[in-house]
């Protein structure tokens, strides 16, 4: 489901990763500054690797040898950013439907109602992002990614900045998405114990 082989040179540093998985959750672990987020950015198309190849959910997103480099909007990755990045000028509902409204109807594989039920979003719809707690904002960010017709999810430290009960709640939701929706995920964490029960494959970066 994921096939990643990328090299990115940033001045003196080189970020390199090779991994392949058949499906489920791939966890990227390592100290902060190891380039975990850069890998997600490369898979999402926000950063272009110097060389390599990225295949996700059966689609070639990047291939330096083949001259393939899809624009971010063509990759249909559900990127849940560490800082959420909800649009501050739009309501929660408009945030959730942002990608849903942009994609072709045949690319929609889940309805807004299903996402609201799955993530418990109904009471939040008419709020502004600025009025959400950390756990609520995280659920909205995940919902927005699912509704954009994501073929796979990129999760960047989804449990950071959450208290223990919220961590358990979000972790439960991620497991449900993995099991009931069967969506491949690339999950970045700086704590290995957080991902061990979740991931089919754990990759250490340093």
């Amino acid at each position: 489901m994921f096939e990643i082989d990328v090299t990115l040179r940033r001045g003196e540093r080189t970020i390199a990763l090779q991994c392949a998985s058949a499906g489920g959750v791939v966890a990227l672990c390592g100290r902060s500054g190891a380039g975990k987020t850069s890998v997600l950015d490369m898979v999402a198309g926000l950063v272009t690797p110097d060389e390599g190849r990225i295949v996700a959910a059966g689609h070639v997103l990047f291939d330096s040898a083949g001259g393939i480099n899809l624009a971010p909007e063509q990759r249909r990755c559900g990127y849940v950013f560490q800082d959420k990045r909800l649009f501050p000028h739009k309501s929660v509902e408009a945030n959730l439907l942002y990608g849903w409204r942009l994609i072709a109807p045949e690319q929609r594989w889940i309805t807004p109602q299903e996402v609201y039920d799955l993530l418990g979003l109904a009471p939040l719809l008419h709020r502004r992002p600025v009025n959400l707690s950390g756990g609520e904002a995280q659920r909205v960010a995940i919902g927005r990614a699912l509704l954009a017709g994501a073929r796979f999810l990129l999760l960047d430290e989804p449990l950071s900045a959450l208290d223990a009960p919220r961590r358990a709640e979000i972790m439960g939701l991620i497991e449900r998405i993995r099991d009931s929706l069967g969506l491949p995920m690339l999950y970045v964490s700086h704590q290995r114990d957080e991902v061990e029960r979740l991931a089919a494959l754990v990759v250490e970066m340093d």
Binding site: L46, A71, E73, G99, G149
Partner: peptide, 14 residues
């Protein structure tokens, strides 16, 4: 914030 624009791109906006 350019990060919000990047988020919009990943959600399918050109």
């Amino acid at each position: 914030d350019p990060k919000l624009e990047a988020a919009a791109r990943t959600l399918g906006a050109g």
